[in-house]
Lab assay of single mutants.
Amino acid sequence: SRYQRVDEALPPNWEARIDSHGRIFYVDHVNRTTTWQRPTAPPAP
């Protein structure tokens, strides 16, 4: 859903941030990219 819980676990090396307008975006520290779409953790084997 559009309103996912912010405290749900993100994949490793990802961080949720809030911009100056109060919107949540996500930072990938490995690839040094950002996205508005919440990343999903790969399925557990």
Rank of each mutant, 00 (worst) to 15 (best):
R2H: 10
T35Y: 05
H29Q: 14
E8F: 08
R17Q: 11
V6R: 13
S20Y: 07
A16L: 04
H21C: 10
P42W: 03
A16H: 00
R2D: 11
H29A: 08
A9V: 10
Y3R: 08
I18G: 04
R17N: 06
R17P: 01
E15P: 01
I18Q: 14
R38H: 15
W14D: 09
D7K: 04
W36D: 10
Q37A: 11
E8Q: 12
V30W: 06
G22K: 04
A16Q: 11
P11I: 01
S1Q: 12
T40E: 14
G22S: 04
R23V: 08
A16M: 04
W36P: 07
P43S: 13
S20F: 14
R17H: 11
Q4H: 06
Q37E: 14
T33H: 12
A44E: 13
R5N: 14
W14G: 03
V27W: 04
H29E: 08
D19E: 01
R32W: 04
W14A: 05
P12A: 10
I18H: 15
V27I: 10
Y26S: 01
D19V: 00
P11K: 06
S20V: 09
V30M: 09
S20N: 07
P43F: 07
T33L: 11
W14P: 02
T35F: 00
T40L: 10
W14E: 02
V6Y: 06
L10E: 02
I24Q: 07
N31M: 08
P43N: 11
A9C: 09
P45V: 15
P43W: 07
I18P: 05
E15F: 00
T35W: 00
T35D: 02
D19L: 00
Q4N: 14
W36M: 09
G22R: 04
R2M: 12
N13K: 05
V30R: 06
E15W: 00
R38S: 04
I24K: 09
L10A: 00
P12D: 06
E15L: 02
I24D: 04
I24T: 11
I24C: 09
Y26M: 00
D7G: 06
E15K: 03
Q37R: 10
W14K: 02
D7C: 05
Y26Q: 02
V30E: 13
R23T: 10
R32C: 11
S1P: 05
Y26A: 01
F25R: 02
H21V: 07
P43L: 11
E15N: 01
T40I: 08
V6I: 14
D28E: 00
R5P: 15
T35L: 01
V30L: 09
S1K: 15
E8R: 05
V27M: 10
R23M: 09
Q4E: 13
Q4Y: 02
I24H: 08
T33M: 14
P11F: 01
S1D: 14
N31Q: 10
P39L: 00
P39G: 01
V6A: 09
R2V: 07
A9E: 13
T40D: 12
R5M: 15
A44H: 06
A9F: 07
D7E: 10
R17Y: 14
R23E: 15
G22L: 00
T33K: 08
V30C: 12
R32T: 08
R38Q: 06
T40A: 13
E8Y: 05
Y3T: 12
P42Y: 12
Y26T: 00
P39F: 14
R2A: 09
L10K: 04
S20Q: 13
L10V: 06
P42V: 11
W14Q: 03
N31L: 07
W36Q: 10
T35H: 05
F25E: 06
D28A: 00
L10Y: 03
T40G: 11
W14S: 05
D7S: 07
H21E: 15
S1E: 15
P43G: 10
N31S: 13
P43R: 08
P42H: 07
V27R: 03
A16E: 09
D7N: 09
I18C: 09
N31T: 14
T33P: 00
P39T: 00
A16N: 01
R23L: 04
L10P: 02
A44C: 11
R32A: 09
A9R: 11
P11W: 01
W14N: 03
Y3E: 05
I18R: 13
D19Q: 00
R17S: 06
L10N: 03
R17E: 04
V30D: 07
W36G: 07
A44W: 04
H29P: 05
L10G: 02
